[in-house]
């Protein structure tokens, strides 16, 4: 699992945000500013922000708001990845191509580390991006399938709160399930 060295800087983030060469770019597009919990500012096109049900309802409640939308539960790195994903999904909405979309989603997921995936889930959940959440849940399930207990704990960063005796007793009960798991 690659350690995270690719944390995007603000400048790269904002430059990425004007996707080319659609004719639509001729129109001025409204931008929405999001602020992560670690005080990074993300300027995204309105169409992208509207993919986030949470942000959408924020603007439905206060339509004239021009404020920065604070996202207190979301840190910059997973947020930037979520934005990246949603930008692509919007293109597929405009030009539906299931095969291409599948391919993109698969690539998007494969190149992410375990930690990236796990960190994006709470963000997708908080922002209520159903499609992404679904894709992430499946990706995570695929990565822990047939893995050992220790592997799963490590994967999610969960502490073992069983005593050694309790764990041993449970293992005896269903010994077969712990045989033949993948080498971690």
């Amino acid at each position: 699992m690659s350690s995270s060295t690719d944390s995007p800087t603000l400048t790269t983030e904002t430059t990425q945000l004007s996707p080319q060469p659609d004719t639509e770019t001729a129109k001025p597009t409204k931008k929405i500013t999001l602020k992560s919990s670690d005080n990074q500012i993300f300027e995204v096109e309105e169409s992208v922000a509207m993919e986030f049900a949470t942000v959408k309802s924020f603007f439905e409640d206060s339509p004239s708001s021009t404020d920065i939308v604070p996202l207190p539960n979301v840190t910059a790195k997973p947020l930037s990845q979520v934005i990246e994903f949603c930008k692509e999904q919007i293109k597929f909405k405009a030009n539906p191509d299931e095969a291409q979309k599948k391919k993109y989603n698969a690539e998007f997921l494969t190149e992410k580390s375990d930690k990236d995936l796990v960190d994006m889930i709470p963000v997708a959940n908080y922002l209520e991006i159903k499609d992404l959440l679904d894709v992430l849940n499946q990706a995570v399930a695929d990565r822990i399938e047939n893995k050992s207990v220790e592997y799963v704990r490590n994967f999610f960063g969960i502490d073992n709160d069983f005593t050694a005796e309790e764990e041993a007793a449970l293992r005896r009960e269903h010994a077969w399930a712990y045989e033949g798991v993948d080498e971690d």
């Binding site: 047939n146 709160d161 069983f162 269903h174 712990y178």
Partner: peptide, 11 residues
């Protein structure tokens, strides 16, 4: 099978 495993992850 993986679910059986998951019963042991935490309480």
């Amino acid at each position: 099978k993986t679910l059986f495993n998951c019963k042991l992850v935490c309480k």
